[in-house]
Nucleic acid binder design. Structure first.
Lengths: 205, 205
DNA sequence: TCACATATGTATCGATCGGTATAAATATGT
DNA sequence: ACATATTTATACCGATCGATACATATGTGA
């Protein structure tokens, strides 16, 4: 049997993406139910909202999941051992910066900017997947530097944690800078500079 | 004549600092009136609050001003021409990172983290002084690189905007990383790495 | 002593917050 | 045709939002 009952008048997946854009731009707490209801499918009622998603928090979790499975994939290269570590780092920086400056969605990265909600203990579990993703990306940068050392490309004295934190913090800062209107061309030039640090850490041969 | 009328039972300047800590940690919109009233002077009433500060927004502006005149001064070195540009950049990075990791107040920088409120046009003017401060710091980094070029220390081909954006975005990212628990020792090691970029841009002589 | 100025406590304002109760509308399965 | 399942629309819930009216308390200046 197909689906029974009266059919839903809006597209559920599309609604999640619209909610994701709102949460991306304003964060969890600042985005209100009425904003979500107005935006979704050109306007839905409260009961339709709760029948479809359960609660604001449940929808946020789905929106975050949607983001992690799409836009956040720009950092996947960090975990691809087929890619040489230097390329993996540079590719990730450029892909992420480009995505964060794209039009068609809010500037910056939802994972980086959904941080403010954390302090309130009542919403700690809401911010947890975002924090986990940041931690994962940070670890990915560190891992690439470690790969560079293990391959003999980088000097044994290279501080992988310091270097990884540098790449990671720069990329987090891009989210704020992008909201302030910095253009992708400037970020790309900055990344070109930043990658010189990798070369400076090379083994003298 | 001194002040007339019934004397205020709480210290106004101290109240501004307590409010600043709340706004610093949670942002403008997420911090509620009842939180502020509870925190200030061990608890004050709504009329006392409005008699003293006028409105939530007015208090926020005073809190931001208080922050800019104290903690935010860590970046003042960027505009001190007495300091050689390389030292000015490094000093600013280390001072700010240290401040952001200090205990006794929220982690990170209030100027960097008070961004989310911006999207809502109703609160644009509230976020404006924060955006102005970020813009000023960004310009300060660029200016130091330009000073380095003008002094003949850095190569003429150095892209000052790219380099300044790199320092600035890294420092903005420190706010998020600090909230995630990264320690000051790691940031200091990252800054040591980052400063090698300045040396890499030196004039070959 | 007493008018004046300011702060305080109680009680409350309308608006919005996230969330629901109820019943009518619209599909499927038999 | 008719029972069942699901979404819809209207109306509303208690709680909290930022902000205020009003009367009382407590100080200064003449």
């Amino acid at each position: 049997m197909a689906q029974m009952g009266r059919p839903r008048v809006f597209d559920r997946q599309q609604a999640i993406e619209q909610a994701m854009h709102l949460f991306w731009e304003q964060g969890y707490e600042t985005t209100s139910l009425s904003q979500l209801k107005t935006q979704i499918g050109g306007g839905i009622s409260a009961p339709s909202f709760y029948a479809a998603f359960g609660s604001k928090e449940a929808l946020f979790k789905e929106a975050v999941q949607c983001y992690l499975e799409s836009y956040a994939r720009v950092t996947d290269g960090l975990w691809d051992d087929e890619i040489p570590p230097r390329e993996a780092v540079e590719l990730t920086l450029r892909r992420s910066a480009k995505m964060q400056c794209e039009s068609g969605h809010p500037k910056g990265c939802m994972v980086a900017l959904g941080t403010m909600s954390a302090p309130k203990p009542e919403h700690a579990h809401v911010a947890k997947p975002l924090a986990a993703s940041r931690s994962r990306t940070h670890a990915g940068f560190v891992r690439c530097v470690e790969r560079g050392i293990a391959m003999g490309e980088l000097s044994e004295e290279t501080d992988a944690r310091a270097m990884g934190t540098m790449f990671s913090s720069f990329l987090l800062g891009v989210s704020i800078s992008a909201r302030d209107g910095i253009k992708i061309s400037v970020f790309n030039a900055s990344i070109t500079e930043l990658m010189k640090l990798w070369d400076a850490a090379r083994n003298e041969r």
